[in-house]
Write a protein that binds this DNA or RNA. Structure first.
Lengths: 343, 343
DNA sequence: CTGAAAGCGCTTACAG
DNA sequence: CTGAAAGCGCTTACAG
């Protein structure tokens, strides 16, 4: 089956009618529609997307941009794939398809995005890993292509975003630790300019302040957001002159490396050092003692991202009247044993 | 900047010349080309992909289909993202872009692929997780869309594929263990119909046969290919009446769960039970004792997949004269301590 | 070296 | 309810 023309010839009707029948337009004789649908199914006809897109001005495809930095690739967890389920469940309501756009590691993310947007391969974009200042946001705003970001940024203004509650997590973690008598509380921070690092640290500092604990820069340990980074964090922690009694982690897999380094040194998490992890993660569930961390649903986050995005798309916004608001995504404390001791 | 028409008007030349200049056609005055390129850069013009595709009959996009089964999502490792680097490095030579197509978990992979292919969103496809019989291969063959599969299958005939050397790994593992005196060697196998499970088991059985060891079905432990599956495998192993002295794993992250379960039972890998893991994995590197496993480069595999695919595409095959051959991807033994004892 | 024109495969006013 | 026709944004023979 080549195109709609062949299908129309085969049915001996016009291509206009075939198109209307296939697209569920109301002004088509039911018998005609039935014949068209049956023939399309039989001959395996599906409309060529380029033809549709060109005529309609929309591609019916939503893009999810994936950074493929070495860091992401070597330590990727199920984060993006976890999101796709929720995203697709919403997009499917409107016959929109999701594609993932992996930015090559040797290409500037801004240039890559620019190219993808200009080529009009997608109707709207989801971007993530927002930097402190992120030119991509200005680009998308200027181009007027609907988008939502996973993560805030100082760039742009009044664009829709959803971000995990890094501030809340940092505050909750500090509160718990202080309640157990801790005052020297270390924290891990990313080694790059990703915005969540700034927010997490700000939350930590303001929480300390609330408790009247002075901020000590030497307790901020900058490492890669990876398992190896956790190992490194453990290492640096052990080298500190006046060793902290607690540490708060920023990335889910760090706990695994941290535990390992601590164990090597005979320092037992939950006895000699209080540890609070970040997002609950299947792979970290085996840790002993059980890690105190924070729970969230990737699927629900995907749903919310999709609805926020659709609310920003003129063609769909009426379905989501209050969905275009930016929001902070809450995480729920999962108490474990890793911080369950009084100083 | 809307389209090529506006750009041409701005330059006061015809759209044909603009197009030729932009596409590097030889018959364009160099001064004209310079002006066109400069204006396009300045105004941010990039050709609309739908327009190009419709006219040219190609999208210049290659699709990588991702299964998003619950199993993949919950235990995804860096496999696909690891592949993208190598894939993109080859595709970039020909200005081809890679997109990832995540199949929704509630959609039949075959139907999803059919839809994507019929819509002509990509020029060629890479599919993976091939099943014992896999209708997708017949579909792609019938549609005449170029493709390559990561994994063999009984379906189809004479299509290009690359598959990890499961047979070689199984044989090498058995040989090593037998050389150390083992005769009761357990093996993990996937709980679904993915083809690699059959090949791995066949390799295991033929290796046993070579050594004159009878095959014992109770030593085949069917579990999910995940860390949790490894834990489960450890559990089932410990329940066996006549406990095996060695176990061979089929999936990289299983070792982590297995170690955990063994440790819980006071069974020490590399002392009480020999363990051979599958693919070397950063996350499993911390295991103590060090896991004997097999090394391969995901990036190189990506490169080879891309070249094999291009060799199957008429427009590019002349660049890759001998690339369309199917091949078995070798893995290199990385000896560790987890099987370093004589029985 | 450049321009005018055809046409890729669709969808959608418009006319009947 | 259906058909004929225009046109989405490009690229590419073709003519000059």
């Amino acid at each position: 089956m080549k195109g709609i023309r062949q299908l129309a010839e085969h049915l001996d009707i016009s291509i206009g009618t075939v198109s209307r029948a296939l697209n569920g337009k109301p002004d088509v004789n039911e018998e005609t529609r039935r014949r068209v649908l049956a023939a399309a199914e039989e001959l395996g006809y599906v409309a060529n997307q380029s033809g549709r897109s060109l005529r309609q001005g929309t591609t019916n495809v939503i893009g999810l941009m994936i950074e493929s930095s070495k860091e992401t690739v070597e330590n990727s967890d199920n984060f993006f794939l976890g999101l796709t389920g929720g995203l697709q469940s919403v997009l499917a309501r409107h016959q929109l398809d999701l594609i993932m756009l992996p930015c090559p590691s040797d290409e500037d993310p801004h240039e890559y995005l620019k190219r993808m947007v200009a080529r009009r391969v997608v109707d709207a974009m989801i971007i993530s890993a927002t930097q402190r200042t992120d030119k991509r946001i200005d680009l998308l705003s200027k181009t007027k292509i609907p988008f939502v970001t996973l993560g805030r940024s100082l760039s742009g203004s009044n664009y829709p975003w959803i971000d995990l509650d890094f501030d809340g997590v940092a505050n909750c973690a500090v509160d718990r630790l202080v309640a157990q008598g801790h005052r020297r509380i270390a924290i891990s921070a990313p080694s790059n300019d990703i915005n969540l690092g700034f927010i997490f640290l700000d939350g930590y500092r303001s929480a300390l302040k609330r408790h009247g604990i002075p901020f000590d820069p030497s307790l901020v340990i900058r490492v890669k957001s990876s398992e190896q980074g956790g190992y490194q964090a453990g290492h640096e922690l052990l080298l500190l002159k006046e060793r902290p009694t607690a540490v708060i982690l920023i990335y889910e897999l760090m706990a695994i490396g941290l535990y390992r380094r601590l164990m090597e040194a005979g320092v037992i998490p939950g006895r000699d050092l209080a540890v609070i992890g970040f997002r609950e993660e299947p792979r970290a569930k085996f840790l002993q003692p059980a890690l105190t961390c924070f729970r969230m649903s990737l699927r629900d986050l995907g749903v919310d991202l999709a609805e926020t995005l659709l609310a920003a798309m003129p063609a769909y916004s009426h379905f989501y009247p209050d969905g275009a608001r930016s929001k902070i995504w809450p995480l729920e404390l999962v108490p474990g044993e890793s911080d369950a001791f009084r100083l």
